[in-house]
Amino acid sequence: MSLLEVINLTVTDKRKNVVIVKNVSFTLERNSCIGIVGESGSGKSMTSKAILGLIHPSLKVTGAAHFDGKDLFQLKSNEIRKIRGKRICMILQDAMSAFDPLSTIGSQMSETLCENLEISKKEAEKISIVELNKMHIKEPVQVLKKYPHQLSGGMLQRCMIAIAIAVKPDIIIADEPTTALDSINQNEVVKEFQRLRSELDTAVIFISHDLGVVQRLAQTVLVMKDGKQVEYGEVKDVFSQPKHEYTRYLVNTRVQLTKSFTEAMRKDHV
């Protein structure tokens, strides 16, 4: 049985009667990664938020999301709260706003860990340090004492991933975690996701518009446009033989944009 099976997920704005996301279906296995690709406003983020029950009450969600024998859309709010954060974690694009600027990284990390793992504060601190070490953060003890604004975006992003890893969820939903980062930090973050999967068996829903990153991380990919599911399939099939015109367009523009760079770098291997 699949870990998560989303069937015909549809999100409608009740007030304006506008369909924001229409009939999105996909399955997610243990130790796998699905990439969701599309432009901003295409419903990528809305899809992930709907799965976690994090959307505004004026929006109506229909369809089903089977996770661990339950339909996530039918759960009561206190039941889904137990799943959210503990079994399904979310990593946001804007790491800076995901942290509370008024308290230290360390206190926020241990707060989350205490809550979700039911451990003491001391243990939580130990785990934090171990996880930060794994993220290749130098001097984790110092980092824990710092406030969000004292760290770079890449650093915060890694702290957020460290929290997610420490909780050991079944699924991690990552919403554009690499977009705002430069290539070095981007690479580090991608490596962490790879490690996460191989070591913890965690499944990842990776939302991005960077086709290169998706290609490296994901096995299956879902292409979205205007709230609709345009294409869904194995990464290698979709990117090498796109069936839908929009996917072809995305792939082509990407190839064109990176052509000079790829060619310049290829010289190295000749």
Binding site: D182, I184, G212, F261, T262
Partner: peptide, 12 residues
């Protein structure tokens, strides 16, 4: 060098 070689390429 690190910046260059960290770029994740997209290959078709």
């Amino acid at each position: 060098r690190r910046l260059l070689y960290s770029v994740i390429p997209f290959n078709v």
